[in-house]
Amino acid sequence: MHVDPLERKWAILSVTLMVLSMVVLGFYALEANIRPPSNVETIDSTRLHLTEEFAEDNLGVKTAADGAVHVTMVAARYGFFPRTVTVPQGVPVTIRIASADVLHGLHAPGTNFNTMVVPGYVSQLTVTFPRTGEFPVMCNEFCGLGHDYMWSRLKVVPKDQFRASLKEEVRHEQG
């Protein structure tokens, strides 16, 4: 066996570089909580409307007693429901989404809000949105001839404005 000394150095360097990358990414994944959706949770996609969580009336944004923000969504050919979702800036938002038919993907450009939506499974991810603004949420997995038309809106607003908008909604419902 013959390996040139220079080539040996290069090999060690390559391996070190790759191991280093893994360590850095591993660190961020754990420390900064940047991680892709990985809950293994099944659901009967043909009966979403009969479940409590994904029934049409229960979709949308909710704030729990401890202030945590939850969003429930459904992806179905060809749209994401509800059509507009408003979330606060700088707060971890937990999003749960299920498909009512085929495979979809959803991405709000410029954010980490990106997940596949797989029939039979619930996707759950937690995202903190650092910037305010309005973002399109577009389907990014081919789901049929209407795939290009499948999109909705995401609004990221400052925290106090978000609280106000929630109160507003409550008043509407009571009034």
């Binding site: 090999a11 390559s14 893994m22 892709p36 990985s38 809950n39 293994v40 596949m116 797989v118 499974y121």
Partner: peptide
């Protein structure tokens, strides 16, 4: 980005993904 595989498995596959860059180097 798929929900039906747990994070640990994804991480394991990622380490292999980086190692497979070595032969290309």
């Amino acid at each position: 980005m798929d929900p039906f595989q747990a994070a640990g498995w994804k991480f394991l596959h990622m380490t292999g993904t980086f190692m497979v860059a070595v032969p290309s180097f």
